[in-house]
Structure formats: C-alpha cells, structure tokens
C-alpha cells in the first residue's frame, strides 16, 4: 500500500511561494490500477515525481508498505520495487536497448526475453536490440522502450507519466492491451497519468488532480461520466443544443 499524508510541494518564484502540490492525501492499495488525470499544469507529474523521489516534498509524509520513504533516495525506492516511466525519456549515446533492458532487469537479459518485452510495446523488430538509445530513435520509439524498461523489472509499484504521449494509434492499441494484461495479473500496483479514455476505462479508480489538489477521486464508473460531462460543457461551442 502507498500512502501520501498531507503531501505538499512548494516552489519560490517571483518573490512568493507557489503550491504545485497542496496538501494531498492519497491511499493506493496493493494491486490497484489508478489513473491520475486532470488539466495540464495541475500538478500530476509533480505528484508522481514525489512518489519516486525525483523531488522531495516540502511537507508531508510518504509511506510504502508501512515504511516511511519520504527521505529515501531514488535508488533506495527502486530497490523497494518502485518503477517510473518518464514522460520525456533520456537519450544515451552508446547505450543499446538490450543493455538498458538488462540494467532494468538487474542482470543480463536473454535476447528472446528482450524481444518479448519490445513486442509488448509494439516494437517487433529484433533490430532494436542493438540500436543505441540516441537521437536516431523517434519520440514514439523512445517512449515505447521506456515503457519496456518497467516491464523488464519485478515491480511492486509501477508509475507511468503519460505513456500514450507521442505514440501512434497502432502502437497505442498494443499499449492498452499491455496495460489490460497487467491489470488482469494484479501483481503490481499501477499509477498512470493519462488523458486517454481507453486507458481510463481499464482503471479501477480515477483521481483528478487540478490546481495542486485532489479535486475528485473514486471508482472509474463514478468519475468517468462526470469528466465527460465537464468536458462537454467546457466551451460555448460544445454546449448541448437544447441549452443554446
């Protein structure tokens, strides 16, 4: 179980404190598939970075399976079984896909297993194994490899920051199927930041983060209709005909 207790993250900018994440309480039980959604700039990415330890909260406590991890390093959290797929993955000159997946796996990963992970993210070619993770890869390719690095690990909690961004429709379908498999397996807890309906629909629960706060939180069949309703009325042009 992951527990966030009164977690805040403030930055000091132009002479004043700005709350990026403001006093959030959140519990994520083991095996849950949670989608975090909400407007851009609302604090979603900051919230998951706090969970991975990429940044430290200015106040509040984070517990993972009862252990206080608030001050643990990224490396220590990785050893506890927390994984993180970046929204904008880093590129590495000279580091091959095979090597990166082997590092993720924690030892040399046989080529056929590597290929199996790549296939799950829509990269079917064996050629990718020896490709370097440099600027020769497209944005979509590098995102898929990033997701494969989480699949190659034994995780207790997997965090994905907008995995769908930059991925074409074909690969997106494969990705959704991949997430469906993970959900069926229920082996790891999953937190995904997403704006995609197809990903939200496979969630157990949706949390809406906006203006640094948890503005809504509940089972998918309760939250999802509310989101559609809100979006439907988002601007005058999209109002329902009877209201015009």
């Amino acid at each position: 179980m992951l527990e966030l207790k009164s977690v805040s993250y403030e930055v000091f900018d132009e002479g004043k404190n700005i709350d990026i994440v403001n006093n959030i309480d959140l519990e994520v039980p083991d095996g849950e598939f949670l989608v975090i959604t909400g407007p851009n700039g609302g604090g979603k990415s900051t919230l998951v970075k706090l969970i991975m330890g990429l940044i430290k909260p200015t106040s509040g406590t984070i517990l993972f399976n009862g252990q206080n991890i608030t001050n643990l390093s990224v490396t220590d959290r990785a050893h506890l079984g927390i994984g993180y797929a970046f929204q904008h993955p880093a590129r590495f000159k000279g580091l091959t896909v095979h090597k990166l997946l082997s590092i993720a796996h924690g030892g040399d990963l046989p080529e056929d297993e590597c290929c199996a992970y790549l296939t799950r993210v829509g990269l079917c070619s064996k050629d990718y194994l020896h490709r370097e993770i440099d600027s020769s890869l497209s944005g979509g390719e590098i995102k898929r490899i990033e997701i494969a690095t989480l699949m190659a690990r034994e995780l207790k909690l997997a965090i994905y920051d907008e995995p769908e961004a930059g991925i074409d429709l074909w690969s997106f379908s494969m990705l959704v199927e991949g997430f469906k498999d993970i959900r069926k397996g229920k082996k790891e807890t999953v937190i995904i930041i997403s704006h995609q309906e197809r990903i939200m629909r496979i969630a157990d629960r949706i949390a809406v983060v906006s203006a640094g706060r948890l503005s809504d939180d509940g089972p998918v069949n309760e939250i999802f209709p509310k989101l559609i309703d809100k979006l439907g009325n988002a601007c005058d042009f999209r109002q329902k005909p009877e209201e015009q």
């Binding site: 990429l54 490396t75 970046f86 993955p89 590092i103 924690g106 690990r153």
Partner: peptide
C-alpha cells in the same frame, strides 16, 4: 535519474 530509477 533514469538509471537511478532502475536501482543503480
């Protein structure tokens, strides 16, 4: 940071 999230 990426390699640290993989446990290094």
């Amino acid at each position: 940071l990426k390699l640290q999230t993989l446990g290094l």
